[in-house]
C-alpha cells in the first residue's frame, strides 16, 4: 500500500484515494514538432527500476493534481510537491541522493 501526503490538504492519502497520472514533467511536443518528438511525447515513458517522479490526483479528496517522488523498488516515498512546477524541489532531490548519490533529475525535469 502506497501512502502519499497531498501537498494541498496535508492528508496522508492511501493509494485507493488517489488516481495515478503517470510520469511527471513531460515536455509537450505539439503542432510543428518532428514526428519522432511527437511520438515520444505521446507514447514513450520511463519505467525505472528505482527513483520515479509521478503525477497523482487526490481524486477522493481535494481533487488536485500533485507530484510524488518514490522508489519503485522499495516503495519509499521521498516526498510530494504541488503540480505548478517544472521539477522537484531541492529538499526532495537531496532526500533521494541520500539513498541514490548519483541520481539526476530525468530529462524534461528542471
Amino acid at each position: 500500500m502506497l501512502t502519499l501526503t497531498c501537498p494541498y490538504c496535508g492528508v496522508a492519502a492511501c493509494e485507493t484515494e488517489l488516481a495515478p497520472g503517470g510520469e511527471a514533467h513531460l515536455e509537450r511536443f505539439g503542432p510543428g514538432s518532428s514526428d519522432a518528438d511527437f511520438e515520444a511525447y505521446l507514447f514513450l515513458r520511463q519505467n525505472p527500476h528505482g527513483v520515479h517522479i509521478e503525477r497523482w490526483r487526490h481524486a477522493m479528496g481535494c481533487g488536485k493534481w500533485f507530484h510524488a517522488v518514490r522508489d519503485t523498488v522499495t516503495m519509499e516515498v521521498f516526498g510530494t510537491y504541488p503540480a505548478q512546477t517544472y521539477g522537484p524541489p531541492e529538499e526532495i532531490v537531496a532526500k533521494v541522493r541520500e539513498r541514490h548519490p548519483d541520481w539526476q533529475v530525468p530529462e524534461g525535469g528542471a
Binding site: C9, V11, A13, T16, E17, A59, M60, G61, C62
Partner: peptide, 8 residues
C-alpha cells in the same frame, strides 16, 4: 474528504 467503499 475520503473514500467510503467505492464512492467519495
Amino acid at each position: 474528504r475520503t473514500r467510503l467503499a467505492q464512492v467519495a
